[in-house]
């Protein structure tokens, strides 16, 4: 029986096929056809919450022990709830500082990771406020 191609078959299953970049040719297919995905985007890897993420530039060497050097790029996510052990950006005396949130005795402190820096206590009677959590550090070696 001849196939009627003038009207579509109703109820047919639609099968999606990936569209390949190069034209079909005899011989070997282009090796690029295996790579039709979008290229890698660093933003996707480093930024979970774009609306809440800001970049800051690290200054000084107080966090060298945590691998944060002068001039490094800090990816700061303000939607992450700060918790003990996290590296945070805090406001101390109206300025930004990057430190690790740590427990000391009864309370919490902002701890540096380099000799010669005193921990900064955090509490209701101090002027210290957590601004955001450092989600990634970009360092040029």
């Amino acid at each position: 029986m001849p196939l009627d191609v003038s009207r579509p078959v109703t109820g047919a299953r639609v099968i999606a096929r990936p569209l390949l970049a190069s034209r079909v040719q005899a011989g070997f297919p282009s090796p690029a056809d295996d790579y039709v995905e979008r290229s890698l985007d660093l933003n996707e890897e480093l930024i979970r919450h774009p609306a809440a993420t800001y970049f800051l530039r690290a200054g000084g060497c107080s966090m060298q022990g945590a691998g944060i050097h002068d001039g490094d790029l800090l990816v700061v996510d303000r939607s992450i709830e700060a918790d003990v052990g996290m590296v945070v950006v805090a406001v101390v005396d109206g300025e930004f500082t990057v430190k690790r949130l740590a427990v000391a005795g009864e309370g919490m402190v902002l701890a540096a990771e380099h000799p010669g820096y005193e921990p900064i206590p955090i509490g209701p009677d101090t002027e210290v406020r957590i601004w955001g959590v450092v989600a990634a550090v970009i360092h040029r070696p």
Binding site: Y54, F55, L56, R57, A58, G59, G60, L73, L74, V89, V92, E95, F96, T97, V98
Partner: peptide, 13 residues
């Protein structure tokens, strides 16, 4: 322009 220029990012102390 804190959020749109690489050379104008806010700095930590």
């Amino acid at each position: 322009r804190y959020t749109t220029r690489w050379d104008e990012l806010p700095r930590t102390r």
